Computed example of a mutant assay.
Amino acid sequence: MAQNKVTSAEVAARAGVSQSAVSRVFTPGASASAKTVEKVRTAAAELGYRPNVLARAMVSGRSRIIGLVVAYLENQFYPVALELLSNALQAKGYHILIFTAPNSTDGIDSVLQDLMDYQVDGIVAASVSMSSDLAARARSAGIPVVLFNRGQNGEGFSNVTSNNVLGGAKVAEFLMAGGHERIAHIAGWQGSSTGRDRQEGFVSALEAAGHEPFDVLEGMYKRDIAMAAARSLVDRPDPADAIFVGNDHMAFAVMDAVRDAGMTPGRDISIVGYDDVPMASWGSYDLTTLRQPVNRMVDATVETLIDQIETTAGKPGLFEIEGELIVRSSARIPEGWTQ
C-alpha cells in the first residue's frame, strides 16, 4: 500500500515552527535562522518529508530548472561540457533536466517543446539548432535560450562558441609551417556552424598563403565516415601528408585508419583535431588539436542565461572565445615552433 505523503504542516508541527518557516527553509535564497533550519531539517528527516519542488514552482512562477539538450553523446566533448554546465548551474541553485534529441529541426523542436511544458526557467541547447517558430514561442513564454557550441543568427537567443574560423586558420598556419604540401581536411557536418566555420577558416588561410587544399571531405562528425574519408586520402599514389579533422572524435578514427594503412601519425602523416577532449592526451593518440576553451564557454553560457532569468536588463549575446593550439606528437612540429 502506498504511504501517504508527509505534508509541510506536519513538519511544522513536529519542529514547533510555522508552516511558512518550513517553506522558507526549503526555498533557495529565502531567509531562515540557523536554529530554525536545524529544527525543520531534523523534523523533515524524522518524518521522511520531501518538498514538492514543482508545486512550489506553480506558486512562485519559477521552477529553478534548466533544460539541457544535446544531440548526441558519442563525441567525447559533450560529456565533459555537460558535466561542467551541470555543476555550474547547480552551484547557482538550479536543477538540471537533460534531454537528448535527434539532429533534425523537427526532433529538436519536439524535445524543446517538452522542456517548455516542464516550466523550465531557461534552456541550453548544446550543438543543436531550433526553428524560428519555436524560438518565437520561447521568447513569448519568457524562457531564455543559449545555444552552446553552435551559432544561429537572428532569433533573439545567445550563442556561445569557440572562435571556429580563427581556430581553423591556426591549424592551417601550423601545418604550412611544418612544410606540408598535400594538406587535406575532413570537415564536420556542414549543416552546423561549427563544421562550416572551421572549414572556412582553414581553407581561407591556406588560400591566402597560396596553397590549395589537397582535398576537402565531409566527415559528418561520424567515426565510420571519417575513417572512410581517411582511407581515401592515403590510398592514392600521392597520399595526403597532413589532415585537419573537424573534431577529436573523428580525428581518433582517422588516426586508427592511417595506422591500419601502415602509416605512423606524426612521422608519415600529420593529424590535427579540434576540441582537446581528455582522450587526446592519452599516449595511444597524443593528438595535436585546437583546444575548445570549454571552461570559459561554460562560464559565458551560465552568466548570460542566469542574467536573462534573474534580471530585466539581461540581453542575448554572441560569444566567440579564442582557443589554443595544443601541440603533441600526432603532427610534425615545425622547426622553431613556439606556442
Score class of each variant (00 low, 15 high):
residue 130 M to I: 15
residue 108 I to N: 15
residue 175 L to I: 05
residue 126 A to K: 05
residue 126 A to L: 13
residue 150 R to H: 12
residue 222 K to S: 04
residue 189 W to T: 00
residue 123 I to C: 10
residue 226 A to W: 03
residue 212 E to L: 06
residue 120 V to S: 08
residue 145 V to H: 12
residue 224 D to N: 11
residue 104 S to C: 11
residue 139 R to K: 14
residue 220 M to K: 07
residue 145 V to P: 09
residue 105 T to R: 14
residue 197 D to M: 04
residue 209 A to S: 08
residue 168 G to Y: 04
residue 205 A to N: 02
residue 197 D to R: 02
residue 152 Q to T: 07
residue 106 D to L: 12
residue 163 N to H: 12
residue 192 S to M: 09
residue 142 G to A: 11
residue 171 V to M: 08
residue 150 R to P: 13
residue 134 L to W: 12
residue 135 A to S: 14
residue 158 S to N: 07
residue 156 G to E: 07
residue 218 E to D: 11
residue 107 G to F: 13
residue 104 S to G: 12
residue 155 E to Q: 14
residue 168 G to T: 03
residue 153 N to G: 13
residue 177 A to M: 10
residue 128 V to E: 02
residue 216 V to E: 01
residue 224 D to Q: 10
residue 144 P to W: 11
residue 176 M to F: 03
residue 216 V to R: 03
residue 231 R to G: 06
residue 152 Q to F: 09
residue 201 G to N: 00
residue 186 I to E: 05
residue 227 M to L: 08
residue 199 Q to C: 01
residue 174 F to S: 05
residue 175 L to N: 12
residue 228 A to F: 02
residue 158 S to M: 05
residue 197 D to L: 04
residue 190 Q to P: 00
residue 140 S to Y: 09
residue 134 L to P: 05
residue 204 S to K: 08
residue 117 D to H: 14
residue 222 K to W: 03
residue 106 D to E: 15
residue 208 A to Y: 01
residue 162 S to V: 10
residue 150 R to D: 07
residue 118 Y to P: 07
residue 111 V to R: 15
residue 221 Y to F: 14
residue 216 V to K: 02
residue 167 G to R: 10
residue 208 A to L: 02
residue 108 I to R: 14
